[in-house]
Design a binder for these strands. Structure first.
Lengths: 245, 245
DNA sequence: GACCTTTAAATGTCTGACAAATGAAAATCG
DNA sequence: CGATTTTCATTTGTCAGACATTTAAAGGTC
């Protein structure tokens, strides 16, 4: 692990990169212990605060974990699906909000990806997945639910559908797509009528998944996408009119 | 922005979380300048190194950028697609390698997601996208290509296909899925015969996309997935045999 | 053998300082 | 007066040294 003495970048960034490369390349394996901060400082010929800044960068990416005390130190972290989900969601959410991605674009992407999971889910879903979907549908049909709670339940429904595919890599990828949509979905106020329509579409999808009918599940998702896009267009038009008038 | 005095977590982690929440919630907008390190230290009642560790954590996630000099400081960064791609790829790659995800699982996820893009790409692809796909196919058919170069060209082909959907959110999501597969694909040694088969399948997909035939493109990808899975099974079986015998 | 104490090693935090970059303002020159 | 140069304050980058806190292993006591 070496750093380039001619680079103009921060020393802490260079050191972080050197260690990150060692981890990604496999030179440092999971649970391996890095040298102590003092040793790293000596090795890279920098001060301990600089090394610490580098280590914090890696910790922010969940690449390492630290433990205090004797025989503590920094260890290469096994990136868990939970941590990966979290990072994926944060990044996706910021990407959507900061680049003002249109609702239409985000919605299209999300449903396209979700349709990719539907046939697998219809084939493999367990009774648990189905029960979760049914439970969320039931919650969505209860009156008095806030828009936020309705959206949260919507996310839970779709995550159950995706998890039904029993492919953790798919679940991970979809976590970002589905969760990152929530802030955009929250901008929509759901009327009782539109909620009814969504519950009906969800029920159709759940029925298809229960019957192991992937084709019908895909069709149901397509209808749901069309309905969601309609809904968003209506809301946006109404907002524009009230703003102008 | 406040931190919890009862928390046992690192101060730098708490401070990073406070600032991150302010950014994600929109309280700090893009290009907004954060207080100087000295001011933050005073505000959170910690020392400057601690503040710096917090800022480095945020910089590692591309949430802020820093600039030296007068009127410099830390600014909320607009998360570009490039940066998001990079993080997505790093996270996905580590997730696959550290959790020993099977080739089968990763491959299934990747092709499922890619099939989701195919109909959109067939509909919207520009001449440029098509030209890139054709160029990569041509490169793949040249003899003397190393396995690594063949894989890299494969990735470029599929990225062009995905980009053809003209949906940056889809491109972002797929970047992780496609690129993270590369280390797994690199474990496969491609014989001349299997390369020929892949080139043929790629040509079929490109033809379908050129003809705006989404259904045929999806079918082509399904064939390619089946072929890839077959190839991997053969390689794995051969390896196991040579190890045992 | 079980329990307590000591101790060494490591991270977490602070203080104070200097170096380097950078843009604004002031000073200088044509 | 305008253009150029210099100065300067501000801010991040880096360093050295110190102390606090945590932790597990080693050693001592009963």
């Amino acid at each position: 692990m070496k750093i380039d003495p001619n680079s103009t970048a921060d020393l802490s960034a260079q050191i972080a990169k050197a260690i990150r490369d060692a981890i990604v390349s496999g030179a440092l394996i999971v649970d391996a212990r890095l040298p102590s901060e003092a040793e790293l400082a000596e090795q890279f010929e920098v001060s301990r605060p600089t090394v610490r800044e580098a280590l914090k960068r890696l910790a922010a990416q969940s690449l390492i974990r630290t433990q205090r005390g004797a025989f503590g130190g920094a260890f290469v972290n096994r990136l868990s699906y939970e941590e990966a989900y979290g990072q994926q969601i944060t990044t996706s959410t910021l990407l959507l909000s900061m680049n003002s991605v249109g609702f239409e674009t985000a919605c299209e992407a999300r449903f396209a990806l979700e349709r990719a999971c539907a046939p697998l889910s219809a084939e493999r879903r367990s009774a648990d997945h189905l029960a979760t979907m049914r439970a969320e549908i039931h919650r969505q049909s209860q009156p008095g639910l806030t828009d936020e709670a309705f959206c949260a339940s919507d996310v839970a429904f779709h995550r159950a559908l995706v998890d039904g595919a029993c492919n953790p890599v798919l679940s991970y990828q979809l976590a970002g797509a589905v969760e990152a949509m929530q802030p955009l979905m929250n901008m929509i106020t759901f009327t009782a009528r539109s909620r009814g329509a969504i519950v009906e579409l969800h029920t159709g999808i759940a029925d298809a998944v229960e019957a192991h009918d992937g084709t019908r599940a895909v069709a149901g998702l397509a209808s749901l996408e069309a309905h969601t896009q309609d809904l968003a267009r209506t809301v946006i038009t109404a907002r524009a009119r009230s703003r102008d008038g």
